[in-house]
Design a protein around this nucleic acid. Structure first.
Length: 608
DNA sequence: TTTAGGG
DNA sequence: CCCTAAA
């Protein structure tokens, strides 16, 4: 039995490492540190723990994998291209074929055909929609943007807007203003955005991080953090970005070159320029999240001996995000991007629950500390049928747990208070050795995924739930009286997720939830298409509800961050485009004033 | 299996 | 979120 794992090796791919380490210590606030310092080399780990160099095929697979990654960055638009250039990538990687506005990288070779076609699939469709509605949009946007404004444009003492001590950062005339937020607020915002806590105290870091998440861009200024319509304002390079992205005009955006001037906010509202709109790039956001872990550590302290927990978390993040073992890695899935040649190595060849001890040169404070790294296999809850089975044989629960755990020599790292989880994990682990135990559902999926990959048509399906585990470790499932299983914890929707959803709807149209699920939420396996639908329903409600999460509840104590007005605005636009406005609340929402507030028990659909 | 809608 | 009917 053997497995392919990633091992750090800083020599393998020149362009990956070039220039990084020089920068890593000095430029925490520079876009340069976006690149991940770790470069993997493929090796096989035999049962006895020996490392065996990977075969060329394997290496190739991963190379494609990486190239795709880079390509996606390019696809993401000009901003990233610039960013990438800072990373010292070969210039050929950065060239865009201006005739098509599509990336043609010398490194991409065969793959870029597929990529290109997939892009063409996506881009024109959005362009179509836009073309049809561009006029309407331009008209309605101004209309719509008003009701969502608390204060009319009558110069809301712009200094207030940006310099207020307690600004309503989420609805400043449709912008998100991260400036002047307290650390605590930033932490909240961070959590709402990424669904993950952070301990970083560095305001600048937090702001950049959030901004990057919200803009899906790594090109974030270090001076001011005002996000409008999911994009950062105050970009000098917007022009070039627009050109690079072609003529897809979608969102309202303002060009504003002055930095943080008090007039910014006003000007932003008045000057409605249409620039290219969204791009779909999971990888960017995804990378951010994982990179957070690294940067966080760096920012948090100096050189601290990594704690056990750190090691675990780090490894978890990596086995989820970087390890080639995570086949058609989730981070490569997304709109406008495909991973035509994901790693095909079947899960079953992976030695289950074998904790491979490795070390990686972690750039802890740039000091190059050797950090042990445990690589572990997915831990996921069992599929429904398994759980259902267990439900009918509760008495046998204890047995399989023990047996399986012993058999697999799973370190009892966690208390057994969560027996169910334990069993779940063990069982899902056993699936990997004993295919007979598995329902064919998963196998089929894997096969079909492979098939699609081989036909080059793959959308980069993630390997069923290979990355689900870590992320859903926390959501325990609980048996209900009626015999059903219910997810115990509502997984809070993060801003990023909401944005993905909105984008997904704009691409695929509301209703095609499974499509959206596959394309935009492939890496969020805990969101079912039904979840998406429900969330959209809520978003709709929220967006048409009178002026977003209103002042009424002044209690600054909202545990969750309100959905930013610009997003709601977009939801509303999309809803109108799809003529799926909620009854009664039609376009008269602008006149109605405080018409009814429809539902008092409108709960908190306007929040995350 | 996926969607739509009610609870 | 869950459940279910209907497609």
């Amino acid at each position: 039995m053997e497995t392919v794992v990633g091992v750090e090796n800083s020599d393998e791919w020149k362009f990956e490492e070039s220039g990084f380490f020089e920068n890593s210590t000095s430029s925490l606030s520079s876009p340069k540190y976006i690149a991940d310092p770790v470069v993997y080399k493929l090796v096989r780990v035999e049962c006895d723990g020996r490392f065996v160099p990977a075969t060329d095929d394997e290496v190739m697979e991963v190379e494609d994998f990486l190239v795709d990654d880079k390509t996606e960055m390019l696809v993401d638009g000009g901003k990233n291209a610039e960013c990438s250039s800072d990373d010292g990538l070969p210039s050929e990687m950065l060239q865009l074929d201006s005739s098509e506005g599509l990336p043609h990288s010398g490194n991409v070779k065969a793959d870029d055909e597929k990529l290109t076609s997939s892009l063409e699939e996506v881009v024109p469709s959005s362009a179509l929609i836009v073309d049809e509605n561009c006029k309407n949009l331009s008209g309605s946007i101004e209309e719509l943007s008003k009701p969502s404004d608390e204060q009319p444009d009558s110069a809301p003492s712009t200094s207030d807007v940006c310099n207020n001590q307690k600004p309503d950062f989420y609805k400043l005339k449709g912008e998100i203003c991260l400036d002047n937020l307290s650390i605590k607020e930033l932490h909240e915002f961070f959590k709402a955005t990424f669904g993950r806590e952070t301990t970083v105290k560095d305001k600048l870091w937090l702001k950049r991080r959030i901004t990057m998440g919200l803009t899906n861009s790594c090109d974030v200024a270090t001076t001011t953090f005002t996000i409008k319509d999911n994009k950062l304002v105050n970009k000098e390079n917007e022009e070039s970005c627009k050109n690079a992205e072609g003529s897809v005009e979608l969102e309202v955006e303002t060009i504003n070159n002055s930095n943080n001037s008090p007039t910014n906010c006003d000007a932003q509202m008045e000057d409605h320029n249409f620039v290219s709109g969204k791009r779909f790039n999971e990888s960017v956001e995804f990378d951010f999240e994982t990179e957070d872990l690294h940067a966080e550590q760096r920012a948090a302290k100096r050189v601290r001996k990594p704690t056990k927990r750190y090691i675990e978390e780090l490894s978890e993040a990596e086995s989820r995000d970087y390890s080639p073992k995570v086949h058609s890695s989730a981070k490569h899935v997304g709109f406008g991007s495909t991973s035509p040649k994901s790693c095909l190595r079947p899960v079953k060849s992976v030695s289950f629950n074998e904790r491979i001890m490795l070390t990686r040169l972690d750039s802890l404070g740039g000091s190059g500390v050797q950090v042990p790294c445990v690589s572990r296999i997915r831990r996921s809850r069992p599929r429904k049928n398994i759980k259902a089975l267990m439900r009918f044989h509760p008495s046998s629960v204890g047995m399989p747990t023990e047996v399986v755990r012993k058999a697999l020599a799973v370190p009892s790292s966690r208390p057994d208070s969560v027996l169910m989880n334990r069993v779940s994990e063990s069982i899902s682990a056993s699936e990997q050795i004993e295919p007979l135990l598995t329902s064919d559902a998963e196998n089929d999926k894997q096969c079909s995924a492979i098939d699609r990959v081989q036909t080059g048509k793959s959308l980069g399906l993630k390997q069923t739930d290979s990355s689900e585990d870590t992320s859903d470790d926390n959501i325990t499932t609980v048996p209900t009286v009626k015999g059903g299983m219910r997810r115990k914890h509502h997984r809070a929707w993060t801003l990023v997720e909401v944005m993905k959803l909105v984008e997904g709807v704009s691409k695929c149209g509301a209703g095609r939830w499974s499509e959206i699920k596959r394309l935009a939420f492939a890496s969020y396996s805990y969101r079912t298409s039904v979840d998406l639908k429900d969330k959209w329903r809520n978003l709709l409600k929220a967006s048409f509800a009178q002026s977003p999460p209103d002042e009424g509840m002044n209690s600054r104590k909202h545990a969750s961050v309100p959905i930013p007005a610009p997003i709601l605005l977009r939801v509303r636009q999309l809803a109108e485009m799809h003529s799926q406005m909620p009854p009664n609340l039609g376009s008269n929402s602008s006149l109605g004033g405080v018409s009814g507030r429809s539902s008092v028990h409108e709960t908190r659909s306007g929040y995350l």
